[in-house]
Computed example of a mutant assay.
Amino acid sequence: MISYIKKNQRSVKLALLATVLGLVPITLSAQSFKLSNGEGKLMVTGTSSLHDWEEVAEQKSGTLQVDVTGELPKITTLKFTVEAESLKSGKGAMDKNTYKALNTDSHKQIVFQLSSIKEISPVTSSSNKYKVVANGNLTIAGKTNKIELPFDLTVNGDKAILEGKKGLKMTDYGVEPPKALMGTIKTGDEIEIHYNTIWKK
């Protein structure tokens, strides 16, 4: 009876050990990256009745977690944040109008938070590049909308690259397109976000 109990105890311990060891590769396979603020570029472009315009985000941050052990990578975490008043056009008056439209006194950040991955497929010309469509929540000027965010993801060792573009309407976020010179210059409602971002371990 005693030998039977000891044998069962050994079996339980071995089963637990196998379970723990089996989980180790899963834990180690999840790679975490941080958005590199000093590299890459995130830019907003748009139109006006006078000329096209662009603003570059000078302060951005984020986290990305990818499991690359399977046939296709699994993106478990994706969040990036832009400090609203770090959007710079090179024209002080335009920047001031932008911050007023975004109500940056109350809403300091623009944030995207992943909720799920809709699609992911390999780019045939590259072994470590994938086309992705992510579902998530985008918050601008305090209003949050669900969006689909398309991008190409490249994972190469200790670095990941996320690049693409997304069209939006300012009015969808309660933002009135800025005006200048007593309303004689009007900004178009449609904008486009261009992102070519570098993420590092």
Rank of each mutant, 00 (worst) to 15 (best):
K159P: 02
L21A: 15
K129C: 06
K7P: 01
I161N: 14
K169G: 06
I140T: 03
L153F: 07
H51M: 04
T76P: 01
N128P: 10
E54L: 07
D158T: 14
V175W: 09
A84N: 06
D189S: 01
G183V: 05
N37Y: 02
S115D: 11
L87Q: 10
L138C: 07
V132H: 13
L87G: 04
S11A: 09
A30P: 04
K146N: 12
E85S: 11
S11D: 05
E71R: 15
I185R: 07
I140E: 04
I185Y: 04
P177E: 07
N128E: 06
G164P: 05
L102K: 00
S36R: 04
Y99F: 15
N145C: 03
G174E: 07
A57I: 02
K201F: 08
T104W: 09
I147W: 07
K96N: 15
K129H: 03
Q59I: 11
S115E: 11
A84H: 05
F151D: 08
Q113C: 02
S127Q: 06
T81G: 02
I75N: 10
T81W: 02
A134G: 02
V155D: 10
G157E: 13
L14A: 13
E176V: 12
S49D: 08
M43C: 10
S11F: 13
A134D: 01
K41V: 11
H107N: 15
S89C: 02
K146R: 07
A101Y: 01
R10N: 12
